[in-house]
Design a binder for these strands. Sequence first.
DNA 1: CCCCTAACTGACCGATCGATCGGTTAGCGA
DNA 2: TCGCTAACCGATCGATCGGTCAGTTAGGGG
Lengths: 212, 212
Amino acid sequence: MSDLSEAPSRGSARLHILDCAKRLFAERGYDGVSISDIARETGASKANIFHHFESKEGLYLAVIAEVVRRVPDHIDALSSEHDIVEAFQELAAAELTEGAKDETGVRLILREIISGDPRRSRVLAEDIFADRFTRLVDLIRTHQDTGTFRKDVDPALAAHVLRSASVFFILGRDVLRHMPGVDFADDPDRYAREAAALVLRGLVVRDSSEEK
Amino acid sequence: MSDLSEAPSRGSARLHILDCAKRLFAERGYDGVSISDIARETGASKANIFHHFESKEGLYLAVIAEVVRRVPDHIDALSSEHDIVEAFQELAAAELTEGAKDETGVRLILREIISGDPRRSRVLAEDIFADRFTRLVDLIRTHQDTGTFRKDVDPALAAHVLRSASVFFILGRDVLRHMPGVDFADDPDRYAREAAALVLRGLVVRDSSEEK
DNA sequence: CCCCTAACTGACCGATCGATCGGTTAGCGA
DNA sequence: TCGCTAACCGATCGATCGGTCAGTTAGGGG
């Protein structure tokens, strides 16, 4: 497998191993993939994998680190849009399109989230999500201060609901495809925009006049 | 371990194995748990596990089936509430409290969702989620017809966003606990109600008058 | 009483796990 | 040209994997 004629340029084998391992780990999880599997997939020998990486866990952590390193950030780009709903739609669509394109990366991180290992949960939370989550919360809070957003909503909670809608879409796509009445499973862009609009505008019609 | 003095009443060992296996599978996943682990945890011998279950996969499927069998349904109970926002809050809170109480069950099903096995995704979708998902969609559509809910929102999409908010809360709790500014990680009831209210009422204040 | 069956066990099977070994190849600086 | 090092390999390690088997125990119906 993977006989790409040549091009053994410096460190290419290492990258190839990382790439294959990433896909396999994303598909089957850490315990579901053996070094032999990765070796077979890369076309290299088992021993060579241990030459490039100190252990199976070392390889796995390297894969995670590589995925994390490549996670782009779309939040900054929208600060000064004129229509706030449109801006959030744009943000959600950009993130979800990106996520759908590199589904293996998303799956990998999500597997890590539910792994339940408290150490890794903490590391992941602080190193990766905390920063952009905080910025999203700040963005919401800013709009609350300016009066664009209602003030009786916890900004962190709202941020989490927005994130959930995006993340769980990718996570549950296979199931979603088999749901009756669902025609957006293969259209991340449309889903992202409609979901963002939904959370911003709400589901109930806006004649009810209740104040907290 | 698990020396409950006696009471070897009919089939109790089988149930004990199911219970331990459920917890272990939820924590570490299918490939992360060996029969020896389960045997050690239950206090029984490996061979005895194969006496009660035909194989490891058979045990796993039995665990899944047991979890699915116990999933309660809260949707029917709310059809005739007077305040629609309150009704949805009640539904979300009931589901999330239930889910938080039996976190292992939720984790197990979520692991199954992201496993990526297309067969199982299909089975899960059709046997478990389809029914109540459809009823939630129908409920939303009904309120659209009566004019309570806005009509420019895909009911299935709205249902999925609502589900996402609940499910991903349990899934990402460990990470959520380490997020700055998050104080609802250990309060499923409050989160469920605020999240439901958010999706129903929306984030933006309701003076903007745009129609599609 | 005996006998049958379900519950249960320790010992063991071949296969595969992560990891290590000694040894070979290839490329590059001196 | 030599020599060093990184890249790579086949063979093999002890441990553990899922699963089997022959045999023992316990309990209830005849």
